[in-house]
């Protein structure tokens, strides 16, 4: 039954706009993300240079290769991308219809 709060399908009627309906909000969120990534990247780079100078260090590497500036940033970015592309490749091999096992 249609009413003030519910539509004919029994769903709650939506009134007004919501936070992420405005594309600007998404853009702002992405801008914040880019700034944070930039700061982290720069921080690690400065840390690397400082280590060479021997003044102070934020991050003492356990291994030489792990101590390269922004090793984790590059690894995280590449790993994520690799996972997505591998998964898309996997999908070509294993994807079937939704009712595959019901038939």
């Amino acid at each position: 039954m249609a009413s003030d709060t519910h539509d004919a399908g029994g769903r709650v009627k939506d009134r007004g706009r919501h936070y992420f309906d405005d594309p600007k909000r998404w853009k702002r969120l992405i801008a914040i993300l880019i700034v944070v990534c930039g700061v982290l990247f720069a921080l690690d780079f400065v840390n690397f240079l400082q280590q060479r100078m021997g003044w102070w260090e934020l991050r003492h590497p356990e291994r030489d290769w792990e101590g390269l500036p922004s090793f984790y940033a590059v690894y995280g970015f590449l790993a994520y991308t690799a996972i997505v592309y591998t998964a898309k490749l996997l999908r070509k091999g294993v994807m079937r219809d939704e009712d595959y096992y019901d038939r």
């Binding site: 982290l40 922004s70 995280g76 997505v84």
Partner: peptide
Amino acid sequence: LQLLFFAVLA
């Protein structure tokens, strides 16, 4: 934080 934020960036 580097690992996670750059993965989010990806």
